[in-house]
Amino acid sequence: MTQETRDTTLQTLFANAEQDLVEETFTSQVMSQTDTLKRNKLIGRIGLGLMLALLALPLQDMALVLMQIPLIDLGDGWLTQILAPLNSVGSLLSLGLIGMRMVFRRIFA
C-alpha cells in the first residue's frame, strides 16, 4: 500500500482559505433557473408533440415506402421472408440512427 503524503503547510492553507459562504440569493437563483429549465422543457415537449401530430401522416407514409424498398434483391424464397424486417432502406436508416445515438451517448454522456 502506498502512502500519499501532502505538504502540511499547504494543507493548512487550503483549510484556512475555506470560507463558510452565506447562501443569500444563491439558492433562490438556482431554483429560479430550475423553473426556467422546467418551462423550456415543457415548451419543447409541446412543440415536439405538435410537430409530430402535424407530420404523423406524412411520416407514416414515408416509413411505409422505405420499409418496402429492399436493400438486396433476394428473389421470392424463404430467405426473403426471414430477412424482410432487416432487408430494407428503412431498417438500414433505423439501425444507422440507433448507432449514431449510441456513439453520441458514449461521447457526450
Binding site: E23, V30, M31
Partner: peptide
C-alpha cells in the same frame, strides 16, 4: 423542489469554495 432547494442550501458553500 423544496427538498432540492434544501440540498442546494446545504451544499452551496462547499461547491462554491
Amino acid at each position: 423542489r423544496d427538498a432540492f432547494a434544501e440540498l442546494v442550501r446545504r451544499r452551496q458553500s462547499w461547491i462554491r469554495n
